[in-house]
Amino acid sequence: MILGHASAIDRFLGAWASGAMHHAWLLTGPRGIGKASFARAAATRMLAEAAGPLIVGAGIETPENHPTAHLINAGSHPDYRFLERILNKTGTALQRNISVDQVRALGDLFSVTPAMSDWRAVVIDSADDLDRSGANALLKMLEEPPAKCVFLLVSHVPGRLLPTIRSRCTTLDFQPLGDDVMASILAEQGQDSTKIPALIQRAGGSPGTALSYAALDLAPLHDQALAIMRAGDPFNERRARLAQSLSLKASADRYAAFLQIVPTMIADEAKILDGPARLRALDAYRRARDTCQLAPRLSFDPGATIFQLGTILASVAPEGASV
């Protein structure tokens, strides 16, 4: 169930019901708040209603026993495509980007008549992961869109997309979720009720982040990063210890998750600061965001990357505290 995004649901379903459906939607907002889940649900609902039988009830969800939902869940719907990063040739990790070949393969979808209805849908999670050639190939499709096809592009950092892609999309902005909604989602996911308040406090309105905290034991890393940000690190001990703990191959998942939470941590800290302290935090947020975006794409050394992030975190510390 999609919780906490009623305005986005109403806007999308209103456009669909009006018969004036825009061909491309850009779903923006922080990572882990449900944009990809919304995109899949929206595409499923649209294709289900186009093919029938009609769905009774409000909301964007499609009953699991609906033929369209069954086919999409099985990965076999002929009029639906989901693009994401795939495994590399060795099968040991995900590729850095969504490739141009993946985008061009959408031509197979558009070269034949739709099978289930006269509509088709494409979800890209995330558009931020497109390589340059892939982004240009997608742009051509958005400039001359196939008839009755809807593109749903998930983006965590829309400012990094080609301006020409953004200009051809209708934007749906997703906000962090409130504590009540977060609690409902985490309880539904089977989290220990005694630990939910702490998860909510650390997750910044992102259920995905909260679940990562729980699954990967990120709380100690969060506390170490917070200590650096608030007290500095005059002898490099804290950042060195943090870098060492995340530089091993066995720590790859925790390293990737840590890269996702650091910018949000700094942004949350900026909200409670003012004056020069807030300016330092905002500058640190910009630098941390850029580092965390580039590091996995360019395969930066994890230890060096974490040490650099530690330096950025320490720059937020009160004046007089040595970084």
Results as ranks from 00 to 15, higher is better:
L3N: 11
L3I: 13
A6F: 10
I9G: 04
M21R: 00
H22F: 00
H23S: 11
H23K: 11
W25H: 06
G34A: 04
K35D: 14
S37I: 05
R40P: 00
A42K: 02
M46Q: 00
A48H: 00
E49T: 01
I55W: 01
G57E: 01
G57M: 08
I60T: 01
I60R: 01
T62E: 01
T62S: 03
P63R: 05
N65P: 00
P67V: 08
A69R: 05
A69I: 03
H70I: 02
H70R: 14
L71S: 06
N73K: 14
N73Q: 13
N73M: 10
G75A: 10
S76W: 00
P78I: 00
E84P: 03
L87D: 08
L87I: 02
L87N: 02
T90I: 07
A93G: 06
Q95V: 03
N97L: 07
D101A: 09
R104D: 05
A105K: 13
L109H: 09
T113I: 03
T113S: 09
P114R: 02
A115P: 00
A115H: 00
W119T: 03
R120H: 09
V122I: 13
D128E: 06
L130H: 08
R132C: 04
S133H: 11
N136A: 05
E143F: 09
E144L: 15
K148A: 04
V150S: 07
L153A: 09
V154R: 06
S155V: 14
H156G: 13
G159S: 13
R160N: 06
L162F: 05
P163V: 03
S167Q: 12
T170Q: 11
T170L: 02
T171G: 03
L177N: 12
G178Q: 07
D180P: 02
M182V: 04
A183N: 12
L186N: 10
Q189K: 11
T194L: 10
K195P: 07
A198R: 11
L199G: 08
R202N: 12
A203P: 05
G205K: 14
G205N: 13
S206T: 00
P207N: 05
P207M: 04
A210P: 07
L211W: 12
L211Y: 05
L211M: 14
Y213T: 04
L216M: 13
L218M: 13
A219W: 01
P220D: 02
L221A: 12
H222W: 15
H222C: 06
Q224Y: 13
Q224W: 14
A227T: 14
M229F: 13
A231R: 07
G232D: 03
P234N: 15
S245A: 15
S251G: 10
A252R: 15
D253Y: 13
A256V: 07
A256F: 06
I261G: 02
P263E: 14
M265W: 09
E269H: 14
G275H: 11
G275K: 10
G275I: 08
A277R: 08
L279N: 10
R280C: 03
L282H: 06
Y285Q: 07
R287W: 01
T291N: 11
Q293T: 14
P296R: 13
L298Q: 06
D301P: 13
P302S: 08
G303Y: 11
G310V: 14
I312Y: 11
L313S: 15
L313M: 14
A321E: 10
V323R: 12
